[in-house]
Design a protein around this nucleic acid. Structure first.
Lengths: 361, 361
DNA sequence: TGCAAGGATGAATACGTATACATAGAATCG
DNA sequence: CGATTCTATGTATACGTATTCATCCTTGCA
């Protein structure tokens, strides 16, 4: 039995010995192949292949002072964030980098997490949360780590930041509603303290005001389905319904839609509704929500790139910030007047009694 | 201006000098604090704090031959996987480990990805995909890396594997339907080639057969919403509807539900429906799907632990596998007879014409 | 033919930490 | 008080790679 037990992993030295060259030449062969003689290279490659050599990224990182890894600190819950994480991963993988993921449930966990993060000498770190304290950002900035705030507009003065244009996007949704004749609009935000929430409400209120419409604010309490579902109770018990509800996040809007249905209130029949984010589910036929689609791929790409090339500014220069425009997606929830197009059977057979299956085998 | 330019990061040597001790003592102070004299320890901690020293995990990993990082290779799309990734992250963070995430869109990317993965000397690697070739698994096994297959039952003979009990879970769903009197059941799978899909169909078919019911198979083509939505067309055009549809994944089921609605077919009115996975959205009021809930946290925990403690088996021992039972979640989609409880307004006001807003202010 | 230039490679070192080994002082005991 | 054990710390080395510098050999040119 020749191969018993756990054998020592193959190093570049092993390859060097097998190929009859020095370790330095092996390293060159993998990093700058053009400076090594063709014959030698071939011999080394053969030896490496035969031994099953695979370069040790840890050692490389130690020497080169760069890990090729970008970290991301992301909230553990929410459809939106899950979507963003996937985008990060795709972008980084595409550019040959890796993603070290830290997700946190409680805000208190973030401190511990950041401490752990700092130990790995990451090429950059993406902080994706609208609720990280600015004092903490400033402190992290000191470590020399290249930070990027994602979806946290207020951080723009402290660290580079990448966001969708929340205010303009929300304004676009508001204008859309105003054009449809809405005069009384209710804005349902997620967390009033979040900078994204404030920006979105600002855009909506400003635009609606200039169109002569009113815009009240209601806080759902979280950017979750459940929060939206519960907030629907408050709407359902109002004396008079608004013409439209602008919800600060798609997931909250889904909850709101489902919650309102319990009261017999549906969009677009009884009121119009918009969301924000452009989650995949917004396109599902079950919701078909009018929303502002965040260019997630593009945002993630910017964040990844900004994080990877650390800014060499000495810390007194104002960091660059990226604001990308979203695009309006028009769904059924603001499609008033135009009756649901092209589903004849649906109208005949839906939900109006047991005869719905008539005419079918 | 004392601090211009990019200053060299602080190392344990710097701390040692500042505290008037040797580098070794500093290292001890951070790893085995009890063997260093209290006075010395205090001096070192003070110096470290003052200089802003943070241990270099890269160097530590190189020396200790262990990175404290677990990798995960996960498909880039799908609600299910996004959910699982979050669970991985939570589990690993909780045990002081980190998650290196690799997501892939195309199966072809996996090869490249695995190559990149191998360079980082991970403590373990979780392969989360039902479609990784078994030959590839065997090859990876050779590298000495501690592998765990997640949701890939067929891999159980080659590498340790963690899955929900697909067959038993599906059987439980089937029995539920049989008890409700379903005699003709249609099983809509995602990808027929996937081992999870096969196991789930097997459990359903076996149980239904022994209950005297039939169970046909239809392939949606993918585990996605869109696939389910399209598959609904084929169902809608059938001459006679089955009593129930068992869908191989929740996301596919959502698509199926929304698709069937276009044909005026709804659950539980016209047929019953079950899903599989127990996604958060299955609990949303909009779908309220009967499904088999995978204990995602628990599965992730097992996978993380199995990956972290590399198996010391020399590669001829059969690896241990973990199979966890899921739990049935009963939703509206199999709630026949019992009329939708407690939403009186809903029945009166929904979708039957413009008078729906009557009686409201 | 002799010399310069350039190309290919080897030797040596540094990256920052953990740890085996050595050592010096303190404490214990006869 | 000398021998011995124990505790606290310093010295030295290894982890695996990238890179600088030096060296040798080939080639071109006068």
């Amino acid at each position: 039995m020749p191969r018993s037990g756990r054998r020592r992993p193959i190093t570049s030295v092993d390859v060097a010995v097998a190929a009859g060259v020095s370790q330095a030449t092996v390293a060159r062969c993998f990093n700058t192949p053009d400076v090594v003689a063709p014959g030698t290279r071939q011999r080394i490659e053969a030896a490496a292949e035969r031994l099953g050599y695979v370069p040790n990224a840890i050692a490389r990182s130690l020497k080169s002072q760069s890990t090729n890894i970008v970290g991301a600190v992301v909230p553990a819950v929410g459809e939106y964030w899950q979507n963003v994480v996937t985008c990060f991963s795709r972008c980084l993988t595409a550019s040959g980098r890796q993603l070290l993921l830290f997700s946190f449930l409680d805000q208190a966990d973030v401190d511990d997490t950041l401490e752990a993060v700092a130990q790995y000498r990451l090429d950059g770190l993406i902080l994706a949360s609208a609720t990280i304290a600015e004092a903490q950002l400033a402190r992290m900035r000191q470590t020399g780590l290249s930070l990027v705030a994602f979806n946290h507009p207020d951080a723009a003065g402290i660290v580079p930041s990448v966001t969708v244009d929340n205010e303009a996007g929300s304004a676009e949704l508001a204008r859309h509603l105003a054009d449809l004749g809405c005069a009384r609009v209710l804005y349902v935000g997620g967390v009033a303290a979040a900078s994204t929430d404030r920006a979105r409400f600002r855009g909506a209120a400003r635009t609606l005001a200039s169109a002569g419409a009113t815009c009240n604010y209601m806080e759902a309490g979280a950017f979750t389905y459940e929060a939206g579902y519960k907030a629907a109770d408050r709407v359902g018990q109002m004396d008079s319904l608004p013409d439209a509800i602008m919800v600060g996040g798609d997931e909250v809007a889904f909850g709101m839609l489902d919650g309102l249905r319990q009261y017999g209130i549906t969009a677009p029949n009884d009121l119009l509704m918009t969301g924000f984010d452009g989650l995949p589910q917004a396109s599902w036929a079950g919701y078909d929500l009018t929303t502002l689609v965040q260019p997630a791929e593009q945002l993630a790409e910017h964040a990844a790139e900004l994080a990877a090339r650390g800014l060499d500014a000495p810390s007194n220069v104002v960091p660059p910030s990226v604001v990308v425009a979203g695009t309006l997606r028009r769904g059924r929830t603001t499609r008033r007047g135009e009756e649901p197009p092209a589903r004849p059977q649906a109208r005949a057979g839906r939900g109006c009694g047991p005869q719905s299956r008539a005419g079918r085998g």
